[in-house]
Design a protein around this nucleic acid. Structure first.
Length: 376
RNA sequence: GGAGAGGUAGCGAAGUGGCUAAACGCGGUUGACUGUAACUCAAUUCCUUCGGGUUCGGCAGUUCGAAUCUGCCCCUCUCCA
């Protein structure tokens, strides 16, 4: 596909970390990068202009959610999701596979696809690999995902083996169903849980199908960090060097750094925006819960080292006030900050990689004052 | 001056003899959150040296036992003069 390709620019000499450019029909973005999640064609509380300001490269949207509302035909009629939401940058849609996992109540996974209940009205829905791709073709994102099963953790080897095999068949079916390979890059998703041979099998089989990019799925589903890092190692080992690797659903500071060190190029996560709405912030001095009484009279910036709109213009005391009063501006400003924080983290990471000092950069960030090992 | 209603934890509000240290909501405090059913959810909220102590306007009673029953007092609100 001409409109989409990955161009590796540098390999850290002492780790598997690398930098590159991801070329998409809606622009070129540098990797490793963090992608904010905008499930319903909006990153909650932010405008596309806000996202541009914080240096966001790619944003996500979601097949399942847009399929239900407003419906893929509306998005298609609008001219695609970017036009629909007045955003002109690169986008990626998740396939709905994760919803099969997160809306796990009363779902039935069969070879044809998954039957499950709508979270909106309880009606019975059916999503298949073909249907997911068909919807994603209409939504029109630059990068689309294979319809996969995100298996629970822990799962037995037997369960995982069946799931991996089925997800591979679904990947093949989705590839065949894909109507717009010229302007939408379809990624395959490596599964296999904590099992090395299954991760390997999943990766190798996907590579045979030749996707323009590969995702690592089934992480951040309850396993401990060390297990997750092993899952990444198992998968990446068998993925081609010249294709982008996307670690799905990972957005804590330590996990992003560990992922980059292992050769991951793309991350997405709801964490920064969700915890922002709940009053928690990632900062250079560690985790800050803006609700705390400690900040009642604190007229300093949220993060003294941050260059975002929130930290440049507002104080902790004011942000605490806004949050306590349930003012939407708190959600907006804290979301801007958290996203900027992670994007800045990846920007710094890219510089470190280019200077072949990624591991020491990682160690330095993780040992920063206030970082208490709780994830960020 | 007359008639009526009422005073319960920071606030609002249940409770009308024991299962009530007192429902529920708000407010307060703390925590969680990882391909978004999430401006959500959880814990905690009289004092405590964790043994216990002191509460339901105040005081005095009835009772084995009172926020709940009786008497007096204080205060608030509504209506009529």
């Amino acid at each position: 596909m001409k409109n989409f390709y990955f161009e590796k620019t540098h390999n850290d000499k002492h780790s598997k970390a690398r930098t590159g450019y991801l070329h998409t029909p809606h622009g070129v973005v540098e990797t490793p990068m963090f992608m904010p999640v905008g499930t319903l064609a909006t990153v909650k509380f932010l405008t596309p202009e806000d996202l541009k300001k914080v240096g966001s490269g790619v944003i996500l949207s979601n097949t399942y959610h847009l399929w239900l509302r407003p419906g893929e035909d509306v998005v298609d009629a609008a001219g695609g999701v970017q036009k629909f939401m007045h955003y002109d940058g690169p986008m990626l849609t998740d396939s709905g596979g994760f919803q099969v996992f997160s809306l796990a109540d009363s779902r039935k996974i069969k070879e044809e696809g998954v039957t499950f209940k709508s979270h909106l009205d309880g009606s019975t829905l059916f999503l298949s690999p073909e249907k997911s791709i068909q919807v994603q073709n209409k939504i029109g994102a630059d990068i689309i995902m294979s319809f996969d099963e995100c298996p629970p953790y822990p799962a037995t080897y037997e369960y995982m083996k069946n799931s991996v095999e089925r997800t591979l068949r679904w990947a093949q079916r989705g590839k065949i169903a894909h109507q717009r390979p010229e302007d939408q890059a379809l990624f395959g998703i490596v599964q296999g849980g904590e099992f090395e041979d299954l991760r390997r099998f999943s990766a190798e089989e996907l590579v045979k199908m030749d996707f323009p990019g590969y995702s690592i799925g089934g992480t951040s589903v309850g396993e401990d960090k060390e297990t997750m890092y092993r899952m990444i190692d198992y998968a990446i080992k068998y993925l081609p060097d010249d294709k982008p690797r996307y670690l799905m659903g990972v957005g804590s500071i330590d996990a992003i750094l560990e992922g980059i060190e292992r050769g991951v190029d793309m991350f997405d996560c709801v964490l920064p925006t969700r915890i922002a709405r709940h009053g928690t912030c990632m900062t250079s001095v560690g985790r800050i819960n803006i609700k705390r009484k400690d900040y009642e009279y604190d007229f300093t910036p949220l993060d003294p080292k941050c260059d975002c709109e929130c930290c440049q213009n507002y104080t902790r005391a004011y942000l605490r006030h806004l949050h306590r009063c349930n003012e939407g501006l708190a959600s907006r400003l804290l979301s801007i900050h958290n996203i900027r924080f992670l994007i800045n983290l990846t920007e710094q990471a890219r510089i470190a990689i280019k200077e072949d000092r990624f591991t020491s950069f990682k160690e330095q960030v993780l040992s920063q004052s206030g970082f208490d090992g709780r994830g960020f």
